[in-house]
C-alpha cells in the first residue's frame, strides 16, 4: 500500500500548521518524522491517519482519494498510535490489546480465531504477554507504552503511524521499541514514526522527513541530514562518530540558545 499527501495545508486557530506538504510513503519503509516542537509533525500524522481533513490538498491511498474509502476499510489498513495515549477505564491488558481488532469485527460477533491470533502475536512481539491479566493502570510507564503499541499492532494494518512511541521509555525499552518498529517494517508494513531523539531516528530509520514550521525541509536517507541543517533548524550542535561500522550522531550542546528560543517563542503551539 502507498499513501501520499498531496499539497496538504492545514491551519489551526489561524496559524498555518502545514504548508503545502507533499509526501509519499511505501510499504516496508521505516520513516522517521522529525522536527522541533510545533513543526507540525503530529498534525501531519493525524492527516495521514485520516483524523484531520486538510484545508487544502488531498490524501491518496493506493491512488484513491482517502475520502472515497470506507471508514472501516481505512481503519483496517492504517493503524494509529496516539501521543501519550490515555486509557479512560481500568481495562485488563488483553482486553485493551483486543480493541485493535474492532475494525475487523462485526457488531456482536465473537472473537474469531484470527482475532485471537493477532492479539497473541501483538502481545508476544511487544513482550507484554506476561502482563495480559494485569490492569492497565497498575503498569509502569514503559509497560503501558508497550501495551498501547501492542494494541496498534493487533490491527495488523499495512501502515502503522506512531506519535512519539519512545517518549516515556527508558533506554532499554526505547531500543526495544525501535527494534520492534524495524521488524514490523521488514515484514512489509510501512511505519511512520514521530521522533524527537535524533540519535534513534538516524540510527533506525530508512528515511528521515524533517519538518520545520509546517514545511518539509528534508526528505531523504539519514545520511543526508547535515550538521548545518540540524544547527539551523534545532539550534543545537551534534557530534558524529562511527561504531560497529555504522555512523551515529548525538546532540551535544545549544547554539545561541537565547536567540533561537526567542525566535521560536511566537511559533509555538502547545
Amino acid at each position: 500500500m502507498r499513501i501520499a499527501a498531496d499539497e496538504v495545508s492545514v491551519s489551526l486557530g489561524g496559524a498555518q500548521v502545514l504548508d503545502r506538504v507533499s509526501l509519499a510513503f511505501e510499504p516496508g519503509e521505516l520513516v522517521g518524522l522529525i522536527g522541533p516542537n510545533g513543526a507540525g509533525k503530529t498534525t501531519l500524522l493525524r492527516v495521514l491517519a485520516g483524523l484531520h481533513q486538510p484545508d487544502r490538498g488531498a490524501l491518496h491511498v493506493d491512488g484513491r482519494l482517502s475520502t472515497d474509502l470506507i471508514r472501516r476499510e481505512f481503519a483496517r489498513r492504517i493503524a494509529y498510535l496516539a501521543q501519550n495515549g490515555r486509557v479512560e477505564w481500568s481495562l485488563r491488558v488483553d482486553h485493551l490489546v483486543a480493541l485493535g481488532r474492532l475494525p475487523h469485527r462485526r457488531l456482536f460477533a465473537a472473537d474469531s480465531p484470527g482475532d485471537e491470533r493477532a492479539v497473541e502475536a501483538a502481545l508476544h512481539a511487544t513482550r507484554t504477554a506476561r502482563l495480559r491479566g494485569r490492569i492497565f493502570h497498575t503498569l509502569s510507564g514503559g509497560e503501558r507504552m508497550r501495551v498501547l503499541l501492542a494494541r496498534a499492532l493487533a490491527v495488523e494494518a499495512e501502515m502503522l503511524l506512531a506519535d512519539e512511541p519512545t517518549a516515556a521509555l527508558d533506554p532499554l525499552h526505547q531500543l526495544q521499541a525501535m527494534d520492534l518498529l524495524r521488524s514490523v517494517a521488514s515484514r512489509g508494513a510501512g511505519v511512520i514514526v514521530v521522533l524527537h531523539d535524533l540519535t534513534l531516528a538516524t540510527r533506525y530509520c530508512d528515511r528521515i522527513v524533517l519538518l520545520d514550521r509546517g514545511r518539509i525541509v528534508l526528505d531523504g536517507a539519514p545520511t543526508t541530514l547535515g550538521d548545518d541543517l540540524i544547527s539551523e533548524i534545532y539550534g543545537v550542535e551534534v557530534v558524529r562518530g562511527h561504531h560497529d561500522g555504522a555512523p551515529y550522531l548525538v546532540t551535544w550542546r545549544t547554539l545561541q540558545a537565547d536567540d533561537k528560543e526567542e525566535e521560536r517563542g511566537d511559533e509555538e503551539r502547545g
Binding site: R71, R72, A75, Y80, A82, E88, L96, L102, L148
Partner: peptide, 23 residues
C-alpha cells in the same frame, strides 16, 4: 446497544477511536 463497539473504542480516546473506524 448498537454503540457498544464504538464505546469500547472510545476507551482509548477520541483520536484512537476514530482511527479504529468509528464516526
Amino acid at each position: 446497544v448498537s454503540t457498544a463497539p464504538a464505546l469500547d473504542g472510545l476507551t482509548l480516546g477520541e483520536d484512537t477511536a476514530a482511527s479504529l473506524g468509528f464516526d
